[in-house]
C-alpha cells in the first residue's frame, strides 16, 4: 500500500462536495437529504429488499466517475413492470443522483451511468413497480485516498 495522499485527487473529488470535504476525506455520514428523497419517492412506504441489483465497484478508481448499473427483475409487460428507479447517495452534499424511467417498451429495467462520489458512502436504489410496490438495494462504495498493494 503506497501512500498516496493524492491531494489533487482529493481536490477533484470535492468538485462534487467542496463544502463538505474542505480538502479532506471524512467518513461517510448519512447527513444529506437521501432519506427524505426516498420517503418522497415512495410516498412514505417502506421499500422491500430484493429484486433490485445495484452493480458498483467496491472501491472506486476515480470518485469523479464511478460506473453504476441498476437492474430490476421484472417481466416488463403491460400487467407488471418497473416504472421508475431512483438512485441516491447518502454521503454526497446532496442525496439525489439519477432517476430512471422505464415502461413495457423498455423490455428490461436496466440502465448504466457514471456518477460522482465525494467520499465513501452507501448508494441506494429504490424501484417503483406499476402496482405501487417498492423494492430496494444498497451497496457501499469506498472512495480511498489511494494505496499500494502487492
Amino acid at each position: 500500500m503506497t501512500l498516496i495522499f493524492n491531494r489533487r485527487q482529493v481536490l477533484a473529488y470535492s468538485a462534487a462536495a467542496a463544502a463538505v470535504l474542505s480538502g479532506t476525506i471524512k467518513p461517510a455520514a448519512a447527513a444529506n437529504d437521501s432519506a427524505e428523497l426516498i420517503k418522497k419517492f415512495t410516498g412514505g412506504k417502506t421499500p422491500q429488499q430484493g429484486r433490485v441489483k445495484l452493480d458498483l465497484p467496491e472501491i472506486a478508481e476515480n470518485g469523479n466517475t464511478v460506473p453504476m448499473t441498476v437492474v430490476v427483475e421484472s417481466p416488463m409487460t403491460e400487467q407488471s413492470y418497473v416504472s421508475d428507479v431512483m438512485v441516491v447517495a447518502d454521503g454526497n452534499p446532496n442525496g439525489g443522483v439519477v432517476t430512471f424511467h422505464f415502461s413495457p417498451a423498455s423490455g428490461v429495467a436496466e440502465a448504466n451511468t457514471r456518477i460522482r462520489l465525494a467520499t465513501s458512502q452507501d448508494i441506494i436504489a429504490v424501484a417503483k413497480m406499476n402496482d405501487g410496490s417498492f423494492f430496494m438495494a444498497s451497496k457501499p462504495v469506498k472512495v480511498t485516498i489511494g494505496g499500494c498493494g502487492g
Binding site: 500500500m1 501512500l3 498493494g149
Partner: peptide, 24 residues
Amino acid sequence: EILEDVADNLFNPDPYYQQGGDMV
C-alpha cells in the same frame, strides 16, 4: 487519515474492500 485509509485497505473485514498490500 493516511494511516486509517491504508489500514482499511488491509483490515476491512470484507475482502472485496481490501487491496492486498501491507501497511504503509
